[in-house]
Amino acid sequence: MAHAETPQTTRRDFLYIATGAVGAVGVAGMVWPFVAQLQPDASVLALSTTEVDLAPIAEGQIVTAQWRGKPIFIFNRAPKDVEAARAVPLKDLIDPQSDQDRVKAGHDNWLVVIGICTHLGCVPIGHQGNYDGWFCPCHGSQYDSSGRVRVGPAPLNLPVPPYTFTSDTKITIG
């Protein structure tokens, strides 16, 4: 703002800089609430868990539940599906991950995954494709009976949401 180099102008410079700096802090402080209001609000956060009763799901059946507005696939796998998923060598996978890591020990038949294609967010269709899993109609990605991607363009496996078994037939997602 000021350019001359006399001692007086140094004091003036300091005043200008201090005022400008405090003003800038104020603007930043004012912007924050306007940014923060876009975050998920308290009522949305409160809905972040979903309970699902597994009892009515028959062997071989895939049920879609909803958690945080997203589809959750719950697949009661037949023993042959589990075997097929565990027989695949990890090196053949696009996103290598063992089936054991994707289910809860002792509940190996239950596969719980977020039903959103990792390519661009479409919902894959169950029991379709060449791997007894899912087929995404948008761009042709295919997933196996462990929800792992087997044919691109999707880069990653269907993610497993955080969930716990509250009893043998009940899970809480989230």
Partner: peptide, 16 residues
Amino acid sequence: VFLIVLAGLLYFTKKK
């Protein structure tokens, strides 16, 4: 507190 400090600084800047 913030606005009073800022108003003070602006007042002296304005006087200058």
